[in-house]
């Protein structure tokens, strides 16, 4: 019985020692650089490059066309772009990136807005790389162009209606492997927080290439 109690007591002491050690470690870290509203420097977010992550070329067929299998409908080629960012933490303590969000414009047309809410910690003074995918659906992009970009298409001399919008989409989808037109990352916002809940937001934008 005495031996059993001794083992239990020893186990408890080991657990307690671990716990105290972790607390001490945290305290030491906090004493070195406790995050405050004043000393929390906003991390930088820089677009490194854009990658055509998956490519199917350009095609569009309307619901008048009978597919070999599956449901008849209006379908346009998808386009999967990946945006790779360098996120640099200038602080002497780790910070968490809560989300990153930005709008993507092909030339003067805003076509997509993406947000990544998967969190990650960036070590003190280090740079993480973040990959954010943006899926462009041909049909969806067509409707977006038609409802919101009709006047701009007309001003660009491409004409009006679905024909003009499809022509524009085809040009973009076919020339994107060589990045022959500017892709704008705009209205970007990345939210960062510390363990203590202090929040900072970084705004960013860049045109690629």
């Amino acid at each position: 019985m005495y031996k059993k109690n001794k083992i239990l007591a020893l186990t408890a002491i080991i657990f307690a020692a671990f716990f105290i050690a972790s607390c001490v470690a945290t305290d030491v870290k906090i004493n070195v650089a406790a995050p405050t509203e004043e000393n929390f420097q906003t991390p930088s977010v820089t677009l490194d490059y854009v990658d055509v992550a998956h490519y199917w070329g350009w095609w569009y067929f309307s619901k008048k066309v009978k597919p070999t299998m599956g449901t008849q409908g209006d379908y346009g080629a998808p386009l999967d772009l990946a945006f790779i960012f360098n996120v640099q933490n200038p602080n002497p303590y780790p910070v968490k990136m809560d989300s990153i969000k930005f709008t993507i414009g092909f030339e003067d047309f805003d076509l997509n807005t993406v947000e990544n809410k998967e969190t990650q910690w960036i070590p003190a003074g280090k740079t993480n790389q973040v990959r954010v995918h943006a899926m462009f659906d041909g049909r969806q992009s067509l409707l977006s162009l038609l409802v919101t970009g009709g006047f701009k298409l007309q001003a660009k001399g491409l004409g009006t209606g679905a024909g003009a919008a499809l022509k524009q989409l085809g040009q973009w989808w076919e020339t994107i492997p060589g990045f022959e037109f500017p892709i704008h990352v705009k209205q970007g916002a990345a939210i960062f927080s510390t363990e203590e809940g202090i929040i900072k937001v970084t705004a960013f934008e860049k045109t690629y290439p």
């Binding site: 007591a9 186990t11 408890a12 657990f15 307690a16 716990f19 972790s22 607390c23």
Partner: peptide
């Protein structure tokens, strides 16, 4: 013995919930 058990219980709960 009772104190020993109580001590073990408190330390374990603190550890589990605290971390």
């Amino acid at each position: 013995k009772k104190w020993q058990k109580f001590f073990i219980l408190i330390v374990s709960i603190t550890f589990i919930f605290g971390s």
